[in-house]
Design a binder for these strands. Structure first.
Length: 861
RNA sequence: GGGCGCAUAGCUCAGCUGGUUCAGAGCACCUGCCUUACAAGCAGGGGGUCGGAGGUUCGAAUCCUUCUGCGCCCA
């Protein structure tokens, strides 16, 4: 499942990471022979898009939203969407995203829109959707509700009033509360203290009187109260503060709403002198009154965050308003169980703790938004009831149906559509995107169609920041409407951060230009860069350097192609000997490939994609390029034998298929360059190489021994400043193990070729003037060819001796620890057999090595 | 206040079921090489005892407890 990006989005780092991961999974699935489907699309993103449209209207069309009708606005909004929306889908193609483009969906497509409405009606009929009070951000100037995003918080200077509420029946005893809003004390319904606060415990349960009006209210105890803040006593005003509202609900307290839509005190306010005044004027008025009555203890200067309307800059008033809610209790239960039972598996799995914590504390979901861009709520009210006082609600998919309901309910057959008013609000964006896995396969309108084939889907890839907004709700919708999970696995990506660990965002301006990155490093380079350090769930600190690695890797791949394609191929008979010698390298490379594929497969199964990529990177760069190609590379201006050449092309092509999910462009290109391909034959449609079959560890160990000898001789060249290309001689002490090591055809050739020696020969005695070294448990001698008398060098015996002594010391310590382990009865008794076996082998290898080292030391002496 | 996570090389991070594929990768650094695929490269090299303390175990970077220092989410 693709998380649909907002229709307003342009490609940024988060999208690139997210979609690269999805593309890797989808390409791998395709190569594994599965019918992989990846539905792309966009989300209408009500708030973000509406804000953009409003700005566009203001700047381009010189129009204000307030001057437009809803219909006009929507027309403009669709115009905007057609012109500027969905750019991101084009940009995703550049990244290589192999979506099923003909399936592109949009959460406001007519059919999708209908699904959302259908679900709303259905939930309402099932009693899982209701209308209730909720605290919203109210702009008293614009007289509109603001979304959280439209409220700007800034520190401002304010005053904290300490006001004494007298205990009922007492002239002196009382409780002092601290508030910034003395004009709201007439809406108070309680005073709350912390249950463990000794200062007030004796007052809990008693009544205190609101100053100036002397209305009694109870003193209650609640954990919410901060003992440190103010006086530790909090006035509870459910109508004018969200937290107070919560406490009021818990204690079943009444709600007294004293402020009208325009910010003026209304008749609910029992203190007559301020009724009709603006809230700030009222505050000014209350101050001297409290002072005169002796209730005002003191006023403190106070800095606090004040929320102001983005549009009018007026101070936002928390206000209770009627909103639509989805009842979460029943929906949440199966969704929680699904994750706990691993019906839906999270990667990394610790996110299920976060999920559980949230799901066990579910609050009902407010799904109405005071916007126009979105699915309009399909609820109608009788106009005669008056705005916001609706007692008759008709929820239906169409206005006609609602009218029908209204006629029936009122018994008035004469009602017309003009007597009804449709709810002005639209639905929360997530109330459409939670249906994505069902709706994109037409699951609601054609329940027996392709939804049957594609649902449940396999994997969802998304950021953990929307685990509640989106993931949890899709799971809920899945069980509610399909009776089963929407996906088997959820892969959580981390956030892309910059070098200072800040989240990359447009407002900070710290996000690299995604398109420029693609230009600079190529899509494959960027994909490599993103993936090489992106373990599931972990944030990635993005650095261009990572993409540089990716680009360099592409370059490496390309150069290897140049090398291989530059070879002349010979079919002549004398090359069969060459082929026999090369067979060892070919066989080794195949085993190594198989071994790595095993790791890659395991990594894919557990979504360790960066591990899989790094395994392939190492295989291709080190094993294939640095070792294998050098082993089989023909001499200057010499041809390569046909057998080895063909085997190499096959290996190379298979490597490209294996790497293809990660770097689709270059692998496709190289795959085509390697051989003539029939039309329609593509790398992306091949079969992923199989890791099955037993791995011949013996050949891998053997090759390890050879490459160690090569490395040791290169080290010596470095030390003695011997030119890499200068041909020397290499002898190995004639022992049973040495004979065995070099009995295989081609083994000596490989070592001699890579170490640039004329050959590797067995010798019974140390050749004079040779440099000794030990590799594995063999003793080697390295010396110039006899004719190369010009070469002037002296063996640094002291240094050689020191090196051997150091190595001896290490090996002896090593053997000692292994011996101690094996002598430990409890170890031998309780450790699994293969561990013990391994320890025994370590011991014998170590002992053989010590023996060789000791002999080597003697020779030097 | 509740919850989640992190601490391993100079930097960014891997390290799965506890055991020589356990201390690893890339970058950075040092030495030598423009070697007839590749200087965006090649060949070598130095560098960490796995945040501190305790415990479980024959055996701990890995499991448990605790402390310290960070980061995030919810309130």
């Amino acid at each position: 499942m693709i998380p649909p990006p907002n229709v307003t989005d342009v490609l940024h780092m988060g999208h690139m990471l997210n979609n690269t991961i999805q593309d890797i999974l989808i390409r791998k699935a395709r190569l594994d022979g599965k019918n992989a489907c990846w539905v792309p699309g966009t989300d209408h993103a009500s708030i973000a898009t509406e804000a953009k449209v409003v700005r566009w209207l203001r700047e381009e069309k010189k129009l204000r939203k307030a001057d437009l009708s809803r219909e006009q606005f929507m027309e403009y909004a669709y115009q905007w969407k057609d012109k500027y929306g969905g750019i991101i889908l084009q940009q995703l193609r550049r990244l290589g995203a192999s979506c099923d483009w003909e399936r592109t969906a949009f959460t406001m497509d007519p059919s999708y829109y209908n699904d959302v409405i259908r679900v709303f009606v259905d939930l309402y009929r099932k009693g899982k959707l209701y209308r209730g009070l909720r605290m919203v951000n109210w702009d008293p100037e614009a007289k509109t509700v603001l979304s959280n995003e439209e409220v700007l918080y800034n520190e401002e200077q304010s005053e904290l009033f300490h006001i004494k509420y007298l205990l009922e029946g007492s002239a002196t005893e009382g409780i002092v509360i601290a508030t910034q809003r003395p004009e709201t004390i007439f809406a108070d319904v309680a005073v709350a203290v912390h249950p463990k606060d000794p200062r007030y415990s004796h007052l809990v349960g008693k009544n205190v009187l609101i100053p100036l009006i002397d209305r009694p209210i109870p003193v209650i105890a609640d954990e919410y109260v901060d003992v440190e803040f103010g006086t530790g006593a909090l006035k509870i005003t459910p109508a004018h503060d969200p937290n107070d509202y919560e406490i009021g609900q818990r204690f079943n307290l009444p709600i007294i709403d004293t402020i009208d839509d325009d910010g003026r005190l209304n008749s609910q306010c029992a203190y007559a002198p301020i009724v009709g005044m603006d809230r700030f004027a009222a505050r000014k008025h209350v101050k001297p009154a409290l002072e005169a009555s002796g209730h005002l203890v003191k006023i403190e200067d106070y800095r606090t965050k004040i929320g102001r309307s983005e549009r009018t800059n007026s101070v936002v008033e928390p206000k209770l308003s009627l909103q639509w809610f989805v009842r979460m209790s029943e929906l949440g239960e199966p969704a929680l169980r699904a994750v706990l039972d691993r019906e839906v598996q999270f990667f990394p799995d610790h996110f299920q703790n976060l999920y559980r914590n949230w799901m066990e504390n579910l609050r009902d979901w407010c799904i109405s938004r005071q916007l126009w861009w979105g699915q309009r709520i399909p609820a109608w009210y009788l106009k005669s009831d008056g705005l916001y006082k609706e007692t008759h609600i008709f929820v239906a998919e169409t206005a006609e149906e609602a009218l029908e309901q209204a006629r029936e309910a009122t018994g008035n057959k004469q009602l017309s559509i003009n007597d009804l008013r449709q709810d002005e609000d639209v639905l929360d964006t997530w109330a459409s995107s939670w249906l994505w896995p069902i709706s994109v396969f037409d699951g609601f309108s054609q329940p027996d169609g392709e939804i049957k084939y594609y649902y449940p889907t396999s994997v969802l890839v998304t950021g953990w920041d929307i685990i509640f907004f989106w993931v949890a709700r899709m799971i809920m919708a899945g069980y509610e409407y399909m009776g089963q999970r929407p996906f088997q696995a959820v892969y959580f990506t981390g956030m892309v951060r910059d070098q200072k660990r800040r989240k990359m965002s447009k407002s900070l301006g710290n996000s690299p230009d995604a398109l420029k990155l693609l230009d600079d490093y190529g899509a494959d380079g960027v994909r490599y860069g993103l993936m090489s350090s992106a373990a599931a769930g972990g944030d990635i600190l993005f650095d261009d350097k990572l993409c540089e690695n990716g680009r360099n890797f592409c370059n490496k791949l390309w150069n290897a192609l140049r090398l291989v394609k530059g070879w002349q191929v010979s079919d002549s008979a004398e090359n069969t000997d060459e082929a026999r010698k090369n067979a060892l390298a070919v066989q080794w490379m195949r085993e190594k490939f198989k071994q790595t594929l095993g790791e890659v497969d395991a990594n894919f199964r557990s979504f360790r994609l960066s591990e899989a990529l790094l395994a392939l990177y190492g295989l291709i760069w080190d094993d294939f390029c640095s070792w294998y190609l050098e082993m089989i590379k023909p001499g200057f201006e010499k041809p390569i034998d046909r057998v080895t050449y063909e085997a190499t092309l096959d290996l190379y092509a298979d490597l490209m298929v294996a790497l293809h999910p990660f770097m689709p462009f270059i692998t496709e290109e190289i795959w085509h360059q390697l051989r003539e391909r029939a039309a329609g034959q593509d790398c992306m449609m091949q079969q992923y190489p199989k890791s099955n079959g037993i791995i011949e560890n013996e050949i891998i160990d053997r090759m390890n021994a050879y490459t160690n000898v090569v490395s040791a001789s290169r080290d010596i060249r470095n030390q003695y400043q011997i030119k890499p290309k200068e041909e020397w001689q290499l002898f190995v002490q004639n022992t049973d193990s040495a004979k065995k090591l070099y009995e295989i055809t081609g083994s000596g050739n490989i070592v001699a070729k890579l170490a640039h020696t004329s050959s590797v020969e067995l010798t019974d005695s140390a050749p004079p003037n040779s440099i000794q070294f030990v590799s594995g448990s063999e003793q080697y001698y390295f010396l110039p060819k006899p004719e190369n008398t010009t070469f002037d060098f002296a063996v640094d015996t002291a240094a050689e001796k020191e090196k051997i002594l150091k190595e001896l010391e290490y090996q002896r310590g090593f053997v000692k620890s292994v011996e101690a382990k094996l002598a430990n009865e409890r170890f031998v008794k309780s450790a699994p057999p293969h561990i013990i076996e391994n320890e025994r082998k370590k011991l014998s290898d170590g002992l053989a090595r010590i023996k060789t080292l000791e002999e080597s030391l003697e020779k030097i002496n």
